[in-house]
């Protein structure tokens, strides 16, 4: 019956495996995909990212009158797959390890070509 005992003794003396979360945070691994960072200066508005985005988090809108393209990024729809960052020819998109605070309002990022 007491097969579990050795484990319990080990657990008791090796200290807890959990963390008091908001005080102590674990660093994500260097290659973790956490957040999409976008550099509008590098972007050529080619539209590859919008085509490839599996969650339609990135959308491109063409304004034919003013010859402008606007890009919208909904970080709440983003599934952090990082496919766009991989395929971006200009390296304007980057999957960063930087974590972010939880937000309570939905923010959609907009940018427009010149």
């Amino acid at each position: 019956m007491p097969v579990m005992s050795t484990n319990l003794i080990k657990n008791f003396f090796s200290g807890p495996a959990t963390r008091p979360y908001p005080v102590v945070k674990r660093e994500p691994f260097p290659r973790a995909r956490v957040r999409l960072v976008y550099d509008p200066d590098k972007c050529t508005y080619c539209g590859i990212c919008a085509n490839i985005c599996p969650a339609a988090a990135i959308t491109m809108e063409e304004d034919r009158e003013n010859l402008r393209i606007s890009r919208h990024y909904d970080s709440f729809a983003c599934i952090s797959c990082g496919r766009c960052a991989e395929l971006c020819p200009q390296a304007a998109l980057l999957m960063a390890v930087r974590t972010h605070e939880p937000s309570d309002a939905k923010v959609v990022e907009h940018s427009t070509s010149r």
């Binding site: 200290g15 807890p16 495996a17 959990t18």
Partner: peptide
Amino acid sequence: TARLQGRMG
């Protein structure tokens, strides 16, 4: 109990 299970509790 938590400490025996390796948790903070």
